[in-house]
Simulated scan of single mutants.
Amino acid sequence: MKTALFDTWTDKYDAWFETPTGRFVRQYESALLLEFLNPLPDDSILDVGCGTGIFTQDVLSCGAKVTGIDLSVPMLERALIRAGNASYSGLCADMNALPFPDNCFDKVYSMTAIEFADDAGRVLAECNRVTRRGGWIVVTTLNSLSPLAEQRTKKAQNGHDLFQQICFRSPDDMRLLVPEKSRCKTAIHFQKNDPVSRIPELERIGRENNLETGAFLAVQWNKA
């Protein structure tokens, strides 16, 4: 089951973001999330598939009130510890059937979770349902156009348990799943084995040229 799989990746997930390259990944992914989500003080925000709360922490630091949901109890427990005394609550729940009424959050976001969903359209519909009218939804995923996706696909073919569960999507794939009036942008324009000293330059070049081949893909739309 995917739940059990995620339980075993709690420590590995956090450890990756503590590596020199992982720190840059977190920095650039968080920057794009915050650009699209624009969390404001006292915003009520839902984090769908919060994992260990690494990115939840960045949203909380803006003064927002965040509710996180995840299928994995170990990951959710780590998120609760990481949040400390911040305005955060977490519960174990399925993103295919969010346990909240319609129009109850100012904003909703999901960080690299939709690629594990069996029905991405249903998840996006649920995110849209629980967002108030006029609120923003931001969904990020792993970009099928990136060299990293090709590498992970090969690892899946060789038996990598996590990557066998992933569905990679391109910017055009995501545009077909969300409302027509949406924004789309990618980040992480460097490779895992690139020299750490070159990462800022490579990311700057990708950003300035609006490349759609970055490994991290974000879409944003407003609930009409």
Rank of each mutant, 00 (worst) to 15 (best):
K2T: 10
T3L: 10
L5Q: 11
F6G: 08
F6N: 04
D7M: 14
T8N: 08
W9E: 11
W9V: 01
W9G: 00
T10C: 10
D11F: 06
K12M: 12
Y13E: 05
Y13L: 08
D14Q: 06
D14K: 02
A15E: 15
W16I: 02
E18F: 05
E18V: 00
P20D: 00
T21I: 12
G22E: 07
G22M: 02
R23H: 00
F24W: 14
V25S: 09
R26Q: 14
Q27C: 02
S30C: 09
A31G: 07
A31P: 03
L32H: 01
L32C: 09
L33A: 11
L33V: 15
L34I: 13
L34F: 06
E35D: 13
F36W: 05
L37D: 05
L37A: 05
N38G: 03
P39F: 09
P39S: 07
P39Q: 05
L40T: 15
L40W: 02
P41L: 07
D42V: 00
D42I: 03
D43N: 13
D43Q: 08
S44K: 09
I45A: 07
I45G: 07
L46H: 11
D47Y: 11
V48W: 06
V48C: 12
C50Y: 13
C50L: 09
C50H: 03
G51H: 03
T52S: 14
G53P: 10
I54L: 14
I54M: 03
F55H: 12
T56W: 03
T56Y: 03
Q57L: 14
D58P: 05
D58G: 00
V59L: 12
L60A: 10
S61K: 13
S61I: 02
S61Y: 05
G63S: 12
G63H: 09
